[in-house]
Amino acid sequence: LQLFIKTLTGKTSTVEMEPSDTIENLKAKIQDKEGIPPDQQRLIFAGKQLEDGRTLSDYNIQKESTLHLVL
């Protein structure tokens, strides 16, 4: 599924993920695209901070969801 990652600067990146992927996997993919180390990334979806060990489906993240990346 395609996700949009929006940064505080207003920049939006697109990443392709599976519902079974963990937040950790997602942060690794963001690191590949943006060069931001996972330990500096905080991802927010629906007002919640996402935890590394959980999966996208745990948070009911659907295709074309927008996640907010806070550093």
Score class of each variant (00 low, 15 high):
Lys63Trp: 10
Tyr59Thr: 01
Gln49Lys: 08
His68Glu: 10
Lys6Arg: 10
Leu71Gln: 09
Tyr59Gln: 03
Ile23Met: 02
Lys63Glu: 11
Asp32Leu: 14
Lys33Arg: 11
Tyr59Cys: 01
Leu1Trp: 08
Ser57Asn: 10
Ile44Val: 08
Glu16Cys: 12
Leu69Asp: 01
Lys27Val: 02
Leu67Thr: 02
Glu34Asp: 08
Leu69Phe: 03
Gln41Asn: 02
Thr7Asp: 12
Thr55Cys: 04
His68Gly: 04
Phe4Tyr: 13
Leu8His: 13
Asn25Tyr: 13
Gln62Asp: 09
His68Thr: 14
Gly35Gln: 05
Thr9Asn: 14
Thr14Ser: 10
Arg42Val: 15
Ser57Gln: 13
Phe4Ile: 12
Lys29Leu: 10
Asp58Val: 03
Ser57Ala: 14
Gly10Leu: 03
Gln41Arg: 01
Pro19Gly: 08
Gln41Ala: 05
Ile5Glu: 02
Pro38Ser: 14
Pro37Trp: 06
Ala28Asp: 06
Thr14His: 08
Ser20Trp: 15
Glu16Pro: 05
Phe4His: 11
Ile30Gln: 00
Glu34Val: 14
Lys27Leu: 04
Met17Arg: 01
Ser20Pro: 03
Thr9Ile: 07
Ser20Val: 05
Leu43Tyr: 07
Glu34Gln: 11
Gln40Met: 12
Thr14Ala: 09
Leu56Ser: 01
Phe45Arg: 02
Thr14Gly: 04
Asp39Phe: 11
Gly35Asn: 07
Leu50Gly: 00
Ala28Cys: 06
Asn60Thr: 04
Glu51Leu: 10
Asp21Lys: 04
Leu50Ser: 01
Ile36Leu: 06
Leu43Gly: 00
Lys33Pro: 02
Ala46His: 14
Leu71Tyr: 08
Lys29Tyr: 07
Asp58His: 10
Glu16Val: 13
Asp32Val: 12
Glu24Lys: 12
Val70Tyr: 14
Phe45Pro: 01
Glu34Trp: 15
Gly47Gln: 04
Thr55Glu: 03
Ile5Lys: 00
Thr12Arg: 06
Arg54Val: 05
Ala46Met: 14
Asp21Thr: 05
Ile23Cys: 00
Leu50Trp: 00
Val15Met: 09
Lys29His: 07
Val70Phe: 14
Glu18Arg: 14
Phe45Leu: 05
Asp52Arg: 03
Asp58Ser: 13
Thr55Leu: 10
Leu3Cys: 02
Leu71Met: 09
Gln2Trp: 09
Thr14Ile: 14
Gly35Phe: 04
Ile30Arg: 00
Ile30Asp: 01
Ile23Leu: 04
Lys11Met: 11
Phe45Thr: 02
Ile5Gly: 01
Tyr59Lys: 00
Lys6Ser: 07
Thr9Leu: 12
Val15Arg: 00
Asp21Ser: 09
Glu24Leu: 14
Ala46Leu: 13
Leu3Gly: 02
Ile23Pro: 01
Asp52Val: 07
Glu18Cys: 10
Asp21Ala: 11
Gln40Lys: 12
Arg54Asn: 10
Ser57Pro: 02
Leu71Thr: 10
Glu64Lys: 12
Asp21Arg: 03
Leu8Trp: 15
Leu50Asp: 00
Thr14Glu: 07
Ser13Arg: 09
Gln62Ser: 12
Leu43Glu: 00
Ala46Val: 06
Asp52Tyr: 05
Lys48Asn: 10
Ile61Arg: 01
Leu69Gln: 02
Phe45Ala: 03
Thr66Gln: 06
Asp39Pro: 08
Gly53Cys: 06
Lys63His: 15
Glu24Pro: 02
Asp32Thr: 11
Ala28Arg: 15
Leu3Trp: 01
Arg54Ala: 09
Thr7Val: 09
Gln41Gly: 03
Ser20Ala: 08
Gln62Lys: 12
Leu1Gln: 03
Phe45His: 06
Ser57Ile: 09
Leu43His: 01
Lys29Cys: 05
Pro38Met: 15
Ser20Leu: 09
Ile44Met: 11
Leu71Cys: 06
Ser57Met: 12
Leu71Arg: 08
Arg54Tyr: 14
Lys48Ile: 14
Gln2Arg: 14
Leu67His: 02
Gln49Asn: 10
Ile36Thr: 06
Met17Lys: 01
Asp32Gly: 08
Lys11Tyr: 13
Ile30Lys: 00
Ala28Pro: 00
Asp58Pro: 00
Lys33Asp: 05
Lys6Ile: 14
Met17Gly: 05
Lys48Glu: 10
Lys48Pro: 01
Thr7Ala: 08
Gln49Arg: 09
Leu26Gly: 00
Leu26His: 00
Ser13Val: 15
Tyr59Trp: 02
Leu1Gly: 04
